[in-house]
């Protein structure tokens, strides 16, 4: 059974640029998939489509059998959580309140616009914060935290949604190596313990190889590699990271050797 099925999806931006040129794939329930590719490959665009932050120009997306369209956008979003490179927390709200925003879709708006939450939701937020090890920062303002801590709040917000899928768009690109390791470990543990499907955009090859069940390589809006990490040969890497109109790139080999 697959949670996410993507069928010949294309995305053309209003300025005419075609960021995705026909993507078709299935992502299995409870898998840990890494999408690997150079900047501008279309990774973010693909992930944003899966959460409905962008609308596909062609093709269709199904999440757990339900087609993603305007009508059920909010309902599907509530089961597809997103983690961002820049964390995208509300700086002036406390850590708890940021985590509680993960509960908004599950509640009517009447209480929530007055910042009133049920005790169940508070319990869920408490558990989520405990999972990411930030219980003691609960009442701090979000912008007082370090980058690694903010990203953990981002993950706690995702967990509070009780989602089927967590999408993470370069969750470690703004972090130091130690925090990166923690965050990737956390995402992996979430997949292992809760069976939540995790899809992560990365551009670090080593992280992808160590954490992923499956790697999808993208370049210029197309899938150019798809397989387990073991199959990610230097040849495959070269295809993923090749630049258009370039036969063979010495710099690339060098960069990949140290990746």
């Amino acid at each position: 059974m697959s949670t996410i099925s993507i069928e010949s999806v294309t995305k053309r931006f209003p300025n005419g640029f075609e960021a995705l040129k026909g993507i078709s794939t299935e992502i299995a329930a409870g898998s840990f998939t890494v999408i690997l590719g150079p900047s501008g490959a279309g990774k973010s665009t693909l992930l944003r489509l899966l959460n409905g932050l962008e609308i596909p120009s062609g093709g269709s997306i199904r999440i757990a059998g339900e087609a993603l369209d305007k009508g059920n956008l909010r309902k599907l979003r509530s089961s597809v959580a997103m983690v961002f490179q820049q964390f995208n927390l509300v700086d002036r709200l406390s850590v708890v309140t940021n985590v509680l925003t993960g509960r908004l879709a599950h509640r009517s708006w009447v209480g929530s616009v007055f910042y009133l939450f049920r005790t169940e939701d508070m319990d869920i937020a408490q558990q989520a914060l405990a999972r990411v090890g930030l219980t003691d920062k609960a009442w701090s303002r979000a912008d007082k935290l370090s980058g690694g801590q903010q990203q953990r709040v981002g993950i706690a917000r995702a967990l509070a949604q009780r989602p089927k899928v967590i999408l993470a768009d370069e969750p470690v690109a703004s972090l130091d190596p130690v925090s990166s390791e923690e965050i990737m470990g956390l995402l992996r543990e979430i997949r292992d313990r809760d069976g939540i499907t995790v899809v992560v955009n990365l551009h670090q090859v080593d992280l992808a190889k160590r954490f992923a069940d499956r790697i999808i390589g993208m370049n210029s809006g197309r899938v150019v590699f798809d397989g387990p990490p073991a199959e990610l040969s230097p040849q495959a890497l070269r295809t993923i990271y090749q630049r258009e109109g370039m036969e063979h790139d010495n710099h690339l080999d060098l960069a990949l050797a140290y990746a």
């Binding site: 959460n51 932050l53 909010r74 997103m82 961002f84 509300v90 925003t101 908004l104 917000r157």
Partner: peptide, 11 residues
């Protein structure tokens, strides 16, 4: 910031 909150399904 808007996308962060919107992505949770907030109205």
């Amino acid at each position: 910031v808007y996308e962060g909150v919107a992505s949770t399904g907030a109205n």
